[in-house]
């Protein structure tokens, strides 16, 4: 261990928060879709991966066109293209694989979602190849704050998460779109009768989830500097775990769950064993759910007899 124990702890906490922000942003997509149509969108992790690849390819296009492209501008363009791509894909997937099954057997959309997840990761494997795709460091500045090294990457990730979450919170709580979403969530039929365009609302929900996942994908690429077609799975499962841990259907819960998972992962790796960090994450999930079956911020499901 390097440095003082306290500093080491804070250092690991900072790392955990960075990672947790990414998980939290992906988790929002799971929790929103679950809230509005009650399905686990298994392909969401792969939408995140598509976002990372869109950012990667955009980066290559930009650096290919202009040699010294400004980093901030590059990041913004990458994020924008990733959002566009992920939204388009998620919108299309909802149209062809989930919408025809709405109101049908509950497991059917779960299976199409798993199918889509397989399709997306294999599509990228086939079109982009199975190898790791490394890119050079975009942002390399590291600051020393009272003996704790905080990289600009980490600061960027946290700032972007806060900005995205604020915008998102505003969208969901303060606009008519958000109201339509909440109405659809509560009672789809009644919302439709009251003039809410349910199909459109659900489509927009998928687009919003995809946009956040794409931002998370860009951040992930920037943070780790590498993308690979299997990237959808592990962060996807972690984010899904985060959504459930926080209480699926709850937006603050998703972020909280994401942060918790990030912290558990980095602290466990720091103090116990890096090999068993995922075992720790999943065990804590199981333990939390056993004692609080609807997650941390989820409303308890009252058994109506």
């Amino acid at each position: 261990m390097d440095g003082e124990p306290m500093e080491y702890f804070i250092q690991q906490t900072v790392n955990g928060i960075t990672l947790g922000s990414i998980y939290g942003m992906i988790a929002i997509g799971y929790t929103m879709v679950y809230g509005i149509i009650g399905m686990i969108n298994f392909a969401h992790g792969d939408i995140f991966m598509l976002g990372a690849f869109a950012a990667l390819i955009t980066f290559l296009v930009l650096t290919g066109l202009v040699a010294g492209f400004p980093v901030v501008a590059a990041l913004i363009v990458m994020m924008a293209v990733a959002i566009l791509m992920a939204s388009l894909w998620n919108w299309t997937i909802e149209r062809i694989a989930y919408r025809p099954l709405r109101g049908s057997f509950r497991l059917a959309p779960l299976i199409t979602a798993i199918g889509m997840s397989i399709v997306l990761s294999n599509f990228i494997q086939v079109t982009q190849g199975p190898r790791n795709k490394p890119i050079p460091q975009l942002v390399s500045e590291v600051y020393d704050v009272f003996g704790i090294s905080i990289s600009l990457k980490q600061i960027l990730i946290v700032i972007i998460t806060v900005v995205m979450m604020t915008a998102f919170w505003y969208l969901v709580n303060r606009t008519s779109l958000g109201r339509a979403q909440r109405a659809t969530e509560q009672d789809r039929k009644m919302a439709a009768l009251l003039g809410v365009d349910v199909d459109r609302t659900i489509s927009i929900t998928f687009i919003m989830g995809a946009a956040l996942a794409a931002v998370a994908g860009t951040m992930y690429l920037m943070y780790y500097g590498v993308a690979v077609f299997t990237d959808g799975f592990t962060p996807g499962v972690k984010a899904f775990t985060a959504a459930v841990l926080g209480g699926i259907g709850s937006l603050p819960g998703a972020l909280l769950g994401g942060l918790l998972i990030g912290l558990i992962e980095s602290l466990w790796s720091a103090y116990f064993s890096i090999d068993y960090k995922d075992v720790a994450t999943f065990s804590i999930l199981a333990i939390v759910l056993i004692f609080k079956p609807s997650g941390i911020l989820g409303r308890p499901e009252i058994e109506k007899v």
Partner: peptide, 10 residues
């Protein structure tokens, strides 16, 4: 395989 899963389910 994935595409077949989606098509059969739909």
């Amino acid at each position: 395989f994935g595409l077949a899963m989606v098509i059969v389910m739909v």
